[in-house]
Amino acid sequence: MKLFNWLWRGEPDAASDANVTGLAAVTRVLVPQALAETTQAHLRKAGNSGNEGLVVWSGVQEGNTFRVRTVTSPEQNPIRTSSGVCVVIEGPALHRLNVWLHKNGERLIAQVHSHPTGAFHSSMDDEYAVVTAPGSLSLVVPDFAARPFAVADCAVFRLTAQGRWVEVGSAAARRLITLVVGD
């Protein structure tokens, strides 16, 4: 994982490059505190039933800044087996999300999901992510979101232009994602 941390440290410079566009150019994600609490509440509710939960953050991009405006919890099926837990979002729910985003002029910036214990990006997280654009984020919240939401508590990953998820170091993640009071 340290290798990935090292690789990612070069990206903020790349983001400031004029050639980098779209979500990959985002160097600051502003999340209203209330939406962070909504996120935690959903994940905690799923966790209380022994299930993982997943929400997506959407909003608008203004240059290098992304303002999260909406937290959406798409219809999802939690699955528990003897080997672990996961959550599956079916096509119709993702289609409804797609249509909603378009009609409301928002785009996805991140998916946030919980794990029962440690926060890491599993191969399932890599291969079946709901967010797909370079620069998108995936936040993994540990311990079924038992604690109030904090970026420092999460493992944060970012999608490269090559389609790989690479971990953003804790300090870089805290610089990238800021909880703000109000809108």
Partner: peptide
């Protein structure tokens, strides 16, 4: 026309991928 390109499914979890 406007059409929508939507994912067939999404998933996340810490279950072993081999289970899929």
């Amino acid at each position: 026309s406007t059409l929508y390109l939507s994912l067939k499914a999404g998933a996340a979890g810490d279950t072993a991928m081999e289970l899929l």
